[in-house]
């Protein structure tokens, strides 16, 4: 029994809402005779998704590989850079402003350059996924490292902890929740980065499928590929969410 004022989401109402939306889409496309190359009906998209399942899986795995490698590189290097900036004063006054400056570059604009430098293959997509995912992880981790409560740092000092012990036993675990938050922001961005990379120049991947399908007016396939990208992104986000359950401690 919900107390008055308590917010509850009713799964029945949510379900009914989305079913209604789907029905409106399906039937308005039919009734108003919308051309299939502009907006296919939901059932057409479903059929296209099923028919192209082999193709979508094949290219989805390519995109997944790009996303995962870019994300892992961003997580590893992002944490390393955040730690460096936090620990080394010179890095704070040199690398940190540089990170902020680089962060401000519209990363989409770098995609053609990456294709020029690294070619049409895997490398340029990895770097694009990395570029999109990197900064949120650096910024979030830095925030976590800097936000360790002063009373805990004093407690560690009273225990005679050196800087390394303080870092390893206090600052790193204390910054973990922030790092995970950064990962949650970064994962969908890594997917965007990989797709952008594929748009600019590629031979495969879901971004490539979207480009080719749109180019040949196979709009239902475009939607099916978009659906595949969305599912991929959701699945990746959910995995990060699952991992972050292990870092259950929050602000102290």
């Amino acid at each position: 029994m919900a107390v008055q004022g308590e917010k509850r989401s009713n799964p029945l109402i949510a379900g009914a809402f989305f079913v209604a939306l789907a029905l409106i889409w399906e039937f308005s496309v039919r009734w108003f005779g919308v051309k299939a190359y502009l907006l296919p009906s939901l059932s057409d998209i479903g059929v296209a998704f099923w028919d192209a399942r082999g193709l979508l899986l094949e290219h989805g795995l390519v995109t997944l590989g790009e996303v995962l490698s870019g994300f892992v590189a961003a997580a590893v290097l992002g944490v390393a850079l955040a730690a460096l900036i936090h620990v080394v004063p010179i890095a704070r006054s040199t690398l940190y402003p540089m990170v902020i400056a680089l962060q401000s570059i519209p990363k989409i604009g770098l995609a053609p350059l990456m294709v020029v430098w690294l070619g049409y293959g895997f490398g340029s997509k990895l770097v694009m996924a990395f570029l999109f995912a990197f900064f949120p992880i650096v910024i979030a981790t830095l925030g976590g490292l800097a936000g360790v409560p002063a009373n805990l740092e004093e407690h560690f000092r009273a225990l005679g902890a050196g800087r390394w012990t303080m870092f390893r036993r206090l600052q790193v675990p204390a910054a973990m929740p922030n790092f995970m938050d950064g990962c949650k922001v970064a994962m969908p961005l890594a997917v965007i980065g990989a797709i952008v990379g594929e748009f600019v120049g590629s031979n495969n991947g879901l971004g490539n499928v979207i480009l080719l399908a749109t180019g040949s007016s196979q709009t239902a396939l475009t939607f099916a590929a978009l659906l595949a990208v969305t599912l991929l992104s959701l699945a990746m986000f959910y995995i990060v969410e699952l991992v972050s359950k292990f870092i259950w401690w929050r602000a102290i």
């Binding site: 009373n151 004093e154 407690h155 000092r157 206090l170 675990p173 401690w249 929050r250």
Partner: peptide, 17 residues
């Protein structure tokens, strides 16, 4: 800080993890 001195602060300072 010395090894033979224990300090207890106003906040319990336990590590939540």
């Amino acid at each position: 800080p010395r090894d033979d001195v224990g300090v207890v602060f106003q906040t319990s300072n336990l590590l939540p993890w």
